[in-house]
Design a binder for these strands. Sequence first.
DNA 1: TGGGTCACGGTTTTT
DNA 2: CCGTGACCCA
Length: 689
Amino acid sequence: MASILDGLNPNQRKAAEHIDGPLLILAGAGSGKTKTLTTRLSYLIGEVGIDPFNTLTLTFTNKAAAEMRERALGMIENRSSTPPLLCTFHKFGLLFLKFHIEKLGRKNNFVIIDSDDKKRLLRAIVKELKIEDLNISFLASEISKYKNSLLTPDVAIKKAELEDYRKVAKVYSAYQSNIEENNLVDFDDLLMLTYRILDENSKLRVEVSNRYRYIMVDEYQDTNELQLKLLEHLSSEHNNLCVVGDDDQSIYGWRGANIRNILDFAETFTDAKTVKLETNYRSTEQILEAANKLIEHNSGRIGKKLESHIGAGPKVNLQHSLDEVHESRAIAREIQELLSKGVDSKDIAVLYRINALSRSLEEGFTKEKLNFKLIGGMRFYERAEIKDIISYFRVLANQNDDFSLLRIINKPKRGIGKASVGKIHKLADENRLSIYDTIISTKESDMVSLVGKKVTNAFKKVVADIKLLQSEVERSIYDFVSLFEDTIGLKDYYAHLVDGQDRVLNMDEFYGYFRDAIKKNPDLTLEEFLNDISLQSEQDQVEGESVTIMSIHAAKGLEFEYLYVIGLEEEFFPLLGDGCNMEEERRLGYVAITRAKRHLTLCYVDSRFYKGRRKMIDKSRFLGESGLIESTSLKITKSSAYKRGDLVKHKIFGIGRVQESNKASGGYKLLINFGGNKKEILSSFVQPI
DNA sequence: TGGGTCACGGTTTTT
DNA sequence: CCGTGACCCA
């Protein structure tokens, strides 16, 4: 009898056929990971006879979820029953909390805030608490770490020993009370609160685990501590957890992903089976040889070797240029030639380690009249004009959302300044009311004496507008957008700014999207719409009519016939610096190389213009490690000579000035004056400033 | 209140 | 070099 498993190779088949007990599918780049996973899901449902209702498949991005859904559903013949739940971790958290957040004493009409909102809120809190010496991004990521380690603010404060961490914990505490008061949840909460509820309610945990009897996780190497704990709870009753990942492609450590999750899978889940997928259907032998050689320099790995299914192929090219201008011109001209030979531009991409390198490409490509598409940069929902609309919508969904109200209270300009906002904010805090309710309940005469007649009127107008719009939302959510623009006039406001035209176009796109969503689902509430879009990102428009340029991170999961990787230089790639994790840099190199199907060009330059100055750089150690050039002798951190008077920085001695410089093996022997304290130090131990 | 100038600092990014 | 936030004055 024909089976859907027939299309798989022996190892893929072994993985798909595995039914009960934990399974780790170690899937190398291009080894048919998605195919195996989707085939397994449809096999379980279509041939083993498992109810789709009892499966759960988790991914990291909406894009991956959408792709897998399409492919799996395409294979399942009888689609009469409920489709299997296949979504992102965060979406799962959202669905779960909609049903169960009451168990934490919270209402389920919460709204999700994104990282941008989080930072804005933190900025306000830091100001209020007068702790202004802490970096906002640092705070945001520390709070994220707290939540992912399940530390409550109280515990965090108690455990904090260093002064700085007491401050961080205090901000965390204020932040958490603030979002709880406004009934907001951040991305981490979607997972953290879900975990907490399951952890505290054993009956529910058993019930939920029994419901999701077959769990699959994609990109397992990217899971963090909390996601692992969540998975342990979800699979506690049956242990049927199947994860797919590649330890060599773990490139999100800086964001909390814990590579140990995949390395230790077999120990964490007893009796786990491991299946390795090492046949690569994407790239040539030449390309895979470079990738394999490079990644072998890492020590913390399970270990596997990709074998090409498509044969030798052409040699990997190296391109050496004087600087970034020559580099981008050379690439542009080569691409032009490919295009003239009939190569499809969507089969060509250029990758880089840091976004700053995109600039020279953009300039060079424009000069050479080469069409390109840049992936990354400002995301749609994070544009100021879109966030303004979203903030209005949020206030309409929940007038107690002070945070959103504050963003739009003087947008468009109503003559309400910082001072007036501060006064009303203070009054609201004293009365333990939201700002909206404070404006409504404060006597007009009191308000006038507080902020003056003009501002009082402006406040009253905002509240009246919001009331009007709320009733319109109830009447017809579809028509409400036009009244919204008539009443608020956000488009007019933006139209008069310098880049107004683009912004108005964006706003129209957003309104169109909103109307579309309502048309598709007339029962959609504003609140549901808001939560849906906050879990969405529109990075799925990669395929197009032009050459793509993007970061290596953004290219994960993609493949290109012709691939260029630029910036293969020490400092840029591997990117050296404080938190440099060389093994992760190398994995990033591995990911970059394995995006290429047949033609790979690695580019490096002698000097690059960066942060306002020109820097001399050496070629990347990765070129040697992947066997593409004779292994270079030890790296010299600075290739141009140090001379008397140069300022340098030493990890222990701090900043000093070079007094003497002599060539020595592997660099320079320097006599440095650290504030009167003279030391003889090798140049490899200092950084030029 | 809000426009203008100045100093500072600057990886990778999804949800 | 270029964008952001703090600060100052009309």
